[in-house]
Design a protein around this nucleic acid. Sequence first.
DNA 1: TCGGTAGTTCCGAAATTCCGAACTATGGGA
DNA 2: TCCCATAGTTCGGAATTTCGGAACTACCGA
Lengths: 107, 107
Amino acid sequence: MRPLFHPALEDVQPEAILHALSDPVRAAIFARIAGTGCVDACRAVSAVGDRVIPKSSLSSHFKVLREAGLIRCERHGVEMRNHSRCTEVDARFPGLLSAIMSAYARV
Amino acid sequence: MRPLFHPALEDVQPEAILHALSDPVRAAIFARIAGTGCVDACRAVSAVGDRVIPKSSLSSHFKVLREAGLIRCERHGVEMRNHSRCTEVDARFPGLLSAIMSAYARV
DNA sequence: TCGGTAGTTCCGAAATTCCGAACTATGGGA
DNA sequence: TCCCATAGTTCGGAATTTCGGAACTACCGA
């Protein structure tokens, strides 16, 4: 398997970040990844709230987050490890991610 | 014409805001409204960058912004005046709008 | 009442999202 | 080595959303 595409920090666009996080499921996934530092993808987030997310949907959610520049994914053996790129993104767009995540936390 | 629907501040949802502003055209419209304080709708924003936006698309963009709680629209005679709800929204989600707008400004 | 400007609604085409089923990749035995 | 189980991706069709032109409505001034 060839390595997954990750945008360079300078190619990360605000619209992609907002689009990625405008889906509550993706926002919850991202919050979990950012909160725990690292999450092995699908099994660890197979449900959000009381809603079960199908594998194929999860896979595309991870792809959206990755291509938006929000997470970094690498395969470790049979599972995928996901790390947030919070620190990087915060350097490019100061305060953006924390404002978004605390807006969600407020609801 | 019956008055337009505007969500109460406590019904404003982060996902709606992010979705509304994840479209660069809407973000540009909102920036113009927030910047000038008030914009008479379509004529004043009939183009974003070098791209002309059809009236019907503009109309639905304004609707999305309004229903997300980002702007307040009222008819004055033949034209529609749009005000940003920045101050209100900032009270509910501190720092969110300014972080988003400065992220766009950075690109 | 007519005419012009501002904006909305309607509706079909295009694009996007959703998710089940089938498939691929990897590692651990036997 | 071969097979199995687990983790995740891809495919494809249905459902939803977005786009934009044409027709329509609302309001004002003359």
